[in-house]
Write a protein that binds this DNA or RNA. Structure first.
Length: 283
DNA sequence: CGCCAGGCTTCTA
DNA sequence: TAGAAGCATGGC
């Protein structure tokens, strides 16, 4: 397990002896869009209808205004504590390129986010950068999400299915508005069953998601990996495409394929590291 | 196949 | 500081 002890303390729930966990790298590597770093260094965000703050100092992670019950019901899963990242990284260490990528950002974890929110967020993400995606998700929630203590939750499919593109215009999502509406209607009408996506044979899960207008291969892989727990899914953007072409022309090693999506997260972050150009990276 | 569509951020001159 | 590039998908 990736922490030694957890205990309720005044004001929240604390983990001690946390390993393979870098809050900043995890929340800032393009997999989630509803967390912001506050001035005091805390990350404040919303997931599963809960607005919370999390801080990390070394190997201590503190969940503000969280009790033990909520930690194990919500945040344990969200931060992927059910997975042994020590074992994962031992596997990745067998591959020289992955070894370097993991060393570059050893505390990255792949979050287990809510499926519907993840699907919508990655529909909005297409042809966009992280800063703008955060703005779009924020406006979508503040205008259509149900009130929760301290903010708004992510709008339910039923709420969005009833909207027209004109009503979604204040979100300023451009041509993606009609995609969000189709996704919401697909869920409402039962054309897409979110509950089965974690268990369906992978090709069927992909095909089901791609019946939604505006969901292509990249968005489908993102939703399955980040929102439906499908660790074998690999979103291939322009950076991952370069990584795969240069270092894995025959594909990722067999042993890594069941967790290829997690490998992807380290490789993607490494490939995009600051100050590195295509020439230095691929020389 | 190639091009364009919202709109915004980031990169480049 | 202006202008260009980039982004993922679908429609033509």
């Amino acid at each position: 397990m990736d922490f030694e002890t957890g205990r309720a303390e005044p004001g929240g729930y604390a983990l001690y002896g946390v390993r393979h966990f870098d809050l900043e790298a995890t929340l800032d590597c393009g997999q989630c869009f509803r967390w912001e770093k506050k001035d005091e260094g805390a990350y404040e965000g919303t997931a599963f209808g809960l607005r919370r703050a999390v801080t990390q100092q070394g190997d201590r992670v503190f969940f503000h205004r969280v009790g033990e019950e909520e930690f194990y019901r919500v945040w344990w899963d969200y931060f992927d504590f059910g997975r042994d990242y020590g074992a994962l990284k031992a596997l990745f260490a067998t591959d020289p390129v992955l070894c370097r990528a993991v060393d570059y950002a050893p505390g990255i974890r792949v979050l287990r986010q809510e499926g519907w929110e993840t699907l919508c967020s990655f529909i909005l993400s297409q042809n966009n950068n992280i800063k703008r995606i955060k703005g779009l998700v924020d406006r979508l929630c503040s205008q259509f999400g149900a009130p929760i203590p301290g903010g708004r939750g992510f709008p339910a499919p039923r709420r969005l299915a009833a909207l027209s593109p004109e009503e979604l215009a204040p979100v300023r999502s451009g041509f993606r508005a009609k995609y969000i509406i189709d996704a919401a209607r697909a869920v409402e009408e039962g054309r897409v069953e979110l509950e089965v996506l974690p268990h369906l044979p992978l090709e069927e899960a992909r095909a089901m998601l791609r019946t939604i207008h505006g969901v292509g291969p990249k968005v489908a892989e993102c939703a399955l990996l980040y929102g439906f727990g499908r660790a074998e899914c690999v979103p291939v953007d322009v950076w991952m495409s370069r990584v795969l072409t240069r270092w894995y022309p025959a594909g990722l090693p067999e042993a890594i394929r069941p967790v290829a999506g997690l490998a992807q997260q380290y490789l993607f972050h490494y490939a995009r590291m600051e100050g590195v150009t295509e020439e230095t990276l691929f020389s």
